[in-house]
């Protein structure tokens, strides 16, 4: 298991996602969106996107509806707290079975 042919002789890193691994495994609750309360969903046009702005992990897409990348979402709950219409709720991970896909 040698690294002799590895090009760099120095600590030289290139960029990519998931340096911390699958950080979605950190969370104990996940964000769930109620589209009926979500402003861009209701208006069907670009609006609000406060959840996208404040997400520390950049796992919320700036789309209609906003989507959560559960591979990396750490479940901090900032999106739920900041959403002006309380469209996002943090739900205990225990409610979601292991069979469900990670990306919703």
């Amino acid at each position: 298991m040698g690294t002799r042919n590895y090009r760099r002789k120095t600590s030289h890193s290139e960029h990519g996602p998931g340096d911390g691994g699958r950080t979605g495994s950190w969370r104990v609750e996940r964000p769930v969106l109620d589209q009926s309360l979500c402003i861009p969903c209701k208006r069907n046009k670009e609006a609000c996107f406060i959840c996208w702005l404040y997400c520390p992990e950049i796992v919320i897409s700036r789309t209609i509806p906003p989507q959560f990348n559960l591979e990396y979402c750490k479940g901090c709950g900032i999106c739920a707290e900041e959403c002006p219409t309380k469209a996002i709720t943090m739900v205990d991970e225990a409610h979601f079975s292991e069979q469900k896909k990670d990306k919703e």
Binding site: T3, H12, S13
Partner: peptide, 25 residues
Amino acid sequence: EPANLNTVTLPDVRIDTKGQLAHGY
């Protein structure tokens, strides 16, 4: 050609972004 130089380097070897085994410290 962005790169991050001399960041924390682990005791053991680790896979890089291209799937290749990279040096440890």
